[in-house]
């Protein structure tokens, strides 16, 4: 996996440039394999843990499940040093600017895991104050289902990120897929009885 170069390189079949072109191909291939291999095995997560999913995230980091087996144990609490944001828990709309600022402060390349039902869809909190899925306002790469997800599920999500990194690691995140941007409008209207309570 990952041995075919993504995109088409300008390739000249003339004998003079044969060696150099092959060489640049080789360098590119090595860099892609090497860099992607390094990146996918040393993801540094930014734990944006706002709720009970954060406890499960801590359990994933602890010794029983041990996210260090995947090289992602270095939780950094500053976005400048991270390349993987794990958004764990429901996000209130008042918190959304914070989350967006943290995402924008992360250096390229960066990936986002939306962990749990609340971060992905709003979950049971279908209220005025809760964001109905962070993918409405942020580009999300992997959705981890569960309420909260078991540590195995989160590890599966990290492995999914690793596959993404392996396949398209050198692509700038602008060129990757975008979030779905689904918007749900409220449909409920409250009935007011006549003459009650003025």
């Amino acid at each position: 996996m990952g041995l075919t170069p993504v995109g088409s390189m300008p390739y000249q079949e003339s004998k003079e440039e044969f060696l150099t072109t092959k060489l640049s191909h080789l360098i590119d291939l090595t860099r892609k394999i090497g860099v992607n291999w390094s990146r996918k095995n040393s993801l540094w997560p930014m734990p944006f843990a706002t709720a009970c999913c954060g406890i499960e995230l801590m359990a994933t980091g602890a010794s029983r499940y041990d996210i260090a087996r995947f090289g992602a144990e270095v939780m950094r609490f500053t976005p400048r040093q991270c390349d993987l944001m794990i958004c764990a828990g429901r996000v209130a709309i008042k918190t959304m600017p914070v989350l967006q600022r943290i995402y924008m402060q992360m250096a390229e390349p960066k990936w986002v895991i939306s962990m749990g039902a609340c971060a992905s869809t709003g979950g049971v909190f279908d209220t005025y104050a809760v964001v109905q899925g962070v993918d409405q306002f942020l580009p999300v790469d992997v959705y981890v289902p569960g309420c909260p997800p078991r540590p195995e599920t989160l590890l599966e999500g990290v492995m999914a990120i690793q596959r993404i990194v392996e396949n398209e690691g050198l692509i700038h995140s602008k060129e990757r897929e975008r979030g779905m941007g689904l918007v749900v409008q409220p449909t409920v209207q409250v009935k007011v009885e006549k003459g009650a309570g003025k």
Binding site: I93, D126, T127, Y128, A129, V130, V131, Q132, Q136, V183, V184, Q185, P186, T187, V188, Q189, V190, V192
Partner: peptide, 12 residues
């Protein structure tokens, strides 16, 4: 009580 639970579109 007359405010809908899901809001009036503020969250989007």
């Amino acid at each position: 009580k007359d405010y809908p639970l899901t809001g009036r579109g503020e969250r989007e």
